[in-house]
Design a binder for these strands. Sequence first.
DNA 1: TTTCGCGTTGTGAGCACTAACGTTACTCGT
DNA 2: ACGAGTAACGTTAGTGCTCACAACGCGAAA
Lengths: 369, 369
Amino acid sequence: MAQRSSKSATIIEVARQAGVSPATAGRVLGDYGYSSPEVQEKVRAAAAALGYRPNRLAKGLITGKTQTIGVVVGDIESPFYASVLRGIADVARGSGFGVIVTNSDESAEREREAVQLLLEKQVDGLIVSSTCVGDPDHLQAAISSNCPVVQFDRVATDLETDTVVIDNVAITRAGVTKLIQAGHRRIGILAELAPGKDKDLAAFVAEADPSDPDLYKHYPSWQRLLGYVEAYRQAGIEPDIELIRRVPTYASAAARKEALDLLTMRDAPTALFTADGLMSTGALQAISALKLAIPTDVSLICFDDLDWMQFVAHGITAISQPTHLIGTSAAELLLQRIGGEDSASQHRVLAAHLVERGSIAVYPEEVSG
Amino acid sequence: MAQRSSKSATIIEVARQAGVSPATAGRVLGDYGYSSPEVQEKVRAAAAALGYRPNRLAKGLITGKTQTIGVVVGDIESPFYASVLRGIADVARGSGFGVIVTNSDESAEREREAVQLLLEKQVDGLIVSSTCVGDPDHLQAAISSNCPVVQFDRVATDLETDTVVIDNVAITRAGVTKLIQAGHRRIGILAELAPGKDKDLAAFVAEADPSDPDLYKHYPSWQRLLGYVEAYRQAGIEPDIELIRRVPTYASAAARKEALDLLTMRDAPTALFTADGLMSTGALQAISALKLAIPTDVSLICFDDLDWMQFVAHGITAISQPTHLIGTSAAELLLQRIGGEDSASQHRVLAAHLVERGSIAVYPEEVSG
DNA sequence: TTTCGCGTTGTGAGCACTAACGTTACTCGT
DNA sequence: ACGAGTAACGTTAGTGCTCACAACGCGAAA
């Protein structure tokens, strides 16, 4: 019977009850060192009788390992992060690890605070989608104090960490190319594109260069824009900057507004590309409000394959990220590092794929010249 | 400058560097007891110079408080749980607490393991949506060892814990009544309804009694069924058990199949009520596959107001739970308990509300008699 | 001057556990 | 028969920090 009292029994009480030394009890219960079968039985019986529950704090204090990993994401409510976290949690549970989650809300300050808290809690490792890819000294601090870090989605490349990403440029290029091949010439794109100012956007589009070591290169939304621009250029068309709309972070209403604006502008686009889930819902809100039909009135490709995309209209063609796999991969890499692996940083690029449904109509190419 | 070496500085090194005793350094850095301004400055300078980072394990070992709360949910990927967790995390962050998340996958065994792990990690409190409402001895064990528990959504009522729920019966009754008032007589309902067997379902419907202290009473999906049955009875109609379809936990495909079956049966329902998000997507898949129009061919009310419900068809009428508030409330209650509050258990019943959109058509009442 | 009290600091114990090491008893090979 | 090896256990010293306690100085009250 477990005891009813307030404080849980310690290993010393178990040892006394079993008539052995604390160290011996520790060996049995902690499953290390030597112990005879008789002693094992006695100790286990005593532990069960007292309702003994090992104190992982004390263990962690000595061993320097807490069997806990810390996770920092933008917002756990977003389907993308939620799914990645699920993958992480699955792997963690399989290895007896706990997972502490924190939301940065895309704020560098909060991210730093979160990392600080996690380090104080002595997590064995960190999985981060960093907001401040620019100066990741807090992550560097973690690495310096022997706390391995794995980055995903957003990546600060000048950091010595394993990374898990998808090839945003290639998959977006493929998607937009699909639209172009269907005859679309004016394709609107809705993307977050933070940080930066409008003039940066123009410069980025003008100079778009896949080998550019620019800061923007590290942000998925900029990478997706790059894929968009490349698809255009490959088709021999110059992208119209009026069709590129940026939306502040976590601004659902703004996404709707931009989409509305885009779809009602003079010479409006015949197709839309949304760079993440928030943009997708914004676009659909606008399309719904304008009573436009998909794909008759407007074609659509959405980044991130959300639940509802299989039944809205005739199905929404979407780019599906292996979110769960991103999480499990990140966790596996991290656990390897925690386990002592000290080979060179691994950089996993996972495959995203286009899920073709019914949101792309063939657009009659205008007869020109 | 923070040091580059592997191990972080301890308070003893900070004390030596500042020329004071470890206890004094602790008082300054830990912000307790007395210390003079001069000493404070010296100690803080030394701490900064050494890149000191307090070890919360050691602190927790002594104080018995880890500033961590444990959360056990069914699946963090579900929008409902993700949003609740977000609420919890927000409150926790505000108080400097960390949050460890675990998924039970609706398995009692996993839930027990999770609770065990969390208790070993010495969490200061637990927020749980329990799978095994029937025998919550693991939760009782937590309470017995002075670890307060707050339950939400699913609740084991014979446990002395604070709870946060919504009135599932009333809000569902209101929703279904709306459908009945619109003239619908055959309303299909899709719900999880675990655990239990088919004959239990028949008995439950036959005896449906709001004051019944039955086990089922604790499960939201059964509560929602109860509201459904009550709405029927209040309208003087006896519910048809053929219209009540149950779906195994986490079986997205099964939800689709049941919905398909429901909509193609002889004397098919003219309206559908889905008891959670999974059922809703299943229903929409079926409706889409059958090329039925909402609300012309089938009316619909969905439990849980998901993102896409504002733009699918003419908008889906939904029951919106205050998910974020559920999380913040649970966390606030828990933090109060952790803070020493020992008043009687609080049971918060939050308001859900019907978001009326365009998925209910008036159904011409048949002229009878 | 004595007494009291308070602010300030240091000392030492201890939180629950593990790791290193010492001791003992026993086995095995030569 | 004897040293080496090994299994089984105990003793002790930590792990980084907090807390109770004692000690001390200093100003105010008696």
